[in-house]
Simulated assay, not measured.
Amino acid sequence: MEDDRVMSFDDWCKLNGFSRSTGQRIIAAGHGPKFIQLSARRKGVSVAENRRWQAARLIETAA
C-alpha cells in the first residue's frame, strides 16, 4: 500500500484485526493513530500513520 493512501475507519479495523467497537474504544481511550477528518461523518487514517502506530506498539518477548 502507498503510504499516503487513506483508509476508512472500517478498513483500519479490518487491517488490524479487530472489530469496529474495539477500534472505537481504542480511539476513545486515546491509544490509536492520528485520524484525518474526511467529512462531517467520516474519518480515516493514512497507511504511514498506521505503520507508525503499529511500530510504537511493538513489544519485546521474553522467549
Rank of each mutant, 00 (worst) to 15 (best):
A28S: 15
I36L: 15
L38R: 11
W53K: 05
A55G: 06
R20M: 02
R25L: 15
D4N: 15
Q37L: 10
G30E: 02
V47G: 10
Q54W: 07
S21D: 07
S8G: 14
S39T: 12
E2F: 08
A63W: 06
H31A: 13
A29P: 01
A48H: 08
I59D: 14
V45M: 04
R25N: 13
R5T: 13
A28Y: 09
R51I: 12
E49I: 03
S46I: 02
T22L: 09
V45Q: 01
E2T: 15
A40E: 08
Q37W: 06
I27T: 02
S46W: 03
S39E: 03
A62L: 09
K14N: 09
S21Q: 07
I59Y: 03
E2D: 12
E2W: 11
R51D: 05
R5S: 08
L58D: 00
F35S: 11
E60G: 14
A63M: 11
R57A: 06
L15S: 09
D11Y: 10
A29E: 13
S21I: 10
R41N: 11
R51C: 05
G32H: 00
R57N: 14
F9L: 08
F9T: 11
S39G: 08
V6S: 06
V6G: 04
A48L: 05
A28C: 08
G30N: 03
A28V: 00
L38N: 14
A29K: 09
I59C: 10
A62S: 11
S39Q: 07
M1G: 15
K34I: 03
Q54M: 09
D4T: 15
A28T: 12
I26H: 05
P33K: 01
E49H: 01
H31P: 00
A63T: 12
K34T: 07
V47M: 14
R51E: 09
K43C: 05
D4Y: 15
D4I: 15
A48W: 05
F9Q: 05
P33G: 07
A55T: 03
W12P: 00
L58G: 00
R51G: 05
L38H: 13
G23M: 04
L58M: 12
V47P: 08
V6W: 10
A29Q: 13
G17I: 10
V6L: 15
F35N: 08
H31Y: 15
A40V: 06
D11P: 02
I27M: 08
C13K: 08
L58T: 06
T61A: 07
H31N: 13
R25D: 08
G23V: 04
R57E: 03
R42L: 12
A48F: 08
R41K: 10
L58C: 02
T61I: 05
A40Q: 12
I26A: 02
R25H: 07
A56Q: 11
R25P: 04
V6M: 14
K43M: 04
W53N: 04
E2C: 12
S21F: 06
R20S: 04
E49L: 00
G17C: 09
K14L: 07
P33Q: 05
S39L: 01
S46M: 11
F35G: 03
V45R: 03
A63L: 13
